[in-house]
Amino acid sequence: MTEAELRELAGKQAALGEVRGAPGPDPVNAPMIRHWLAAMGDTNPAYLDKGLAPPAMAQVWTMQAPRQGRSPVDDPMAALDGAGYTGVVATNCEQTYHRYARVGERLTPATRFTDLAGPKQTALGVGYFATWNVTWYGDGDEPVAEMLFRVLKFRPRQGAGEERPPYPLQPAVNQDTAFFWEGAKSGELRIQTCADCGRLRHPPGPLCTRCRSSHLTYTVASGHGTLYSYVVHHHPPVPGRETPFVVGVVELPEGVRVVGNVVGCPPGEVEIGMALRVAYRPMDDRLVLPMWIPEEP
């Protein structure tokens, strides 16, 4: 999706105005208030004494409300993901309390998509700031609380990190292998290919393993693969890594195998035969490693 298309979508969503969600599954109630106060370490007696909810609980009452249709926020978020702005970090949360919610009343949220600003250069990478507002209505249909919420959807940096320490596990690279590591930096999984006979080969070397030609180029792999084998590393500690971590041998439809980390799912859910797709992870300012995440079903 282009910048213009993103802007158009954001405008369309904002034009929807306020979209009501389902009411909270439970009315404002003392047990949940007591539980919340205990978890926060808040000993203020006023709430339970007066039958009022702590104001910062506003959102709590509708957290587990059933999904009712699409929120106006869903489509812009999906579009940003699709455009490569896969990173997300909340930047602002501004709540205004018109009054404290009363025990026994049921809150209903309503969401309005208000703004999409960008693309902007940020410390995390290029991204868009998306803003929406939620209003919680009480039993009398008057607003009890309002929230402005803003997130930065950013394109994770590849290579140029912010004061990142150098990753300790650097590959040795020479003229036979540099194309692979350059490819990873530009988001390509490059498989050495013989320019004469077309043979694909990984790991690469100076000569074609079939015809011994030194006229070598590369094919950009589809990025899909199947897990052929894997390990879960627990011990000893490895520099630059948090344990446990998973390393797999991935079989590509192009007919070669590649080793890489399997990420984005708990080690216990990794299994031989699972469908994977490549993802690129910058390790420091110089190195990007191709890793593998579970293919969406």
């Binding site: 040795a172 690279v173 490895v238």
Partner: peptide, 17 residues
């Protein structure tokens, strides 16, 4: 070194692994 470089950067670097 080049051979190891297809594995070590991913933390695959001990005999047990």
């Amino acid at each position: 070194g080049l051979e190891m470089s297809w594995h070590v950067p991913f933390g695959l670097m001990t005999p047990a692994a």
